[in-house]
Amino acid sequence: MTDFDELFAVAWPRLLRTTYAVTGDRQLAEDALQSAFAKAYAAWPRVSRADDPVAYVRRIALHAAIAQQRRASVRRETTIPALPEDHARSGEDALLQRDEVWTAVASLPPRQRAVVVLRYYEDLSEREIAETLGCRPGTVKSQAAAALSSLRARLGDAAPLTGDRP
């Protein structure tokens, strides 16, 4: 097994979950991540020397996914008036869609949603999130504050988790 193979095996599951959480689109997440790993392989001599090859793949995947999502939204707006409900959702996806917190996160604007996922799922610092999203730490801070404000208004601090309900 090569170093690249090892990176792929170790990083694929977590990065797919992250990309899915940011985009909310399973196929889009898989395609973006697959493409990111292909790019990493193409530049492997350099990527393998980086301090954190996973961060490289994560950055490429999220950038591609968010850009593709924006393009897809344009096509949907111009060609398909409405998507069928529960479009191509698996059982697990459907469970997630019923989770109160997940639904609230999914309603955030794309960049705020990415900041929340990277902070609370990937446990990245503001600086790491800024590097991942290609923006400034100040932007991460303001986006995080806006996201938490929206989520607090929607969920409240005291509301129980879906799983805690009787």
């Binding site: 193979d5 792929f8 095996a9 694929w12 599951p13 797919l16 979950r17 899915y20 959480a21 898989e30 991540l33 697959q34 790993f37 698996s90 697990e92 996806d93 469970l95 997630l96 989770d99 917190v101 997940w102 996160v105 929340v116 996922v117 609370y120 799922y121 989520l151 969920l155 988790l161 879906t162 799983g163």
Partner: peptide
């Protein structure tokens, strides 16, 4: 809540193996 919900929710997600 965010950390817990994201971790628990995404852990339930069926992740197919990637195409190495």
């Amino acid at each position: 809540r965010l950390a817990r919900s994201l971790h628990e929710g995404l852990a339930r997600l069926d992740v197919p193996p990637g195409d190495l």
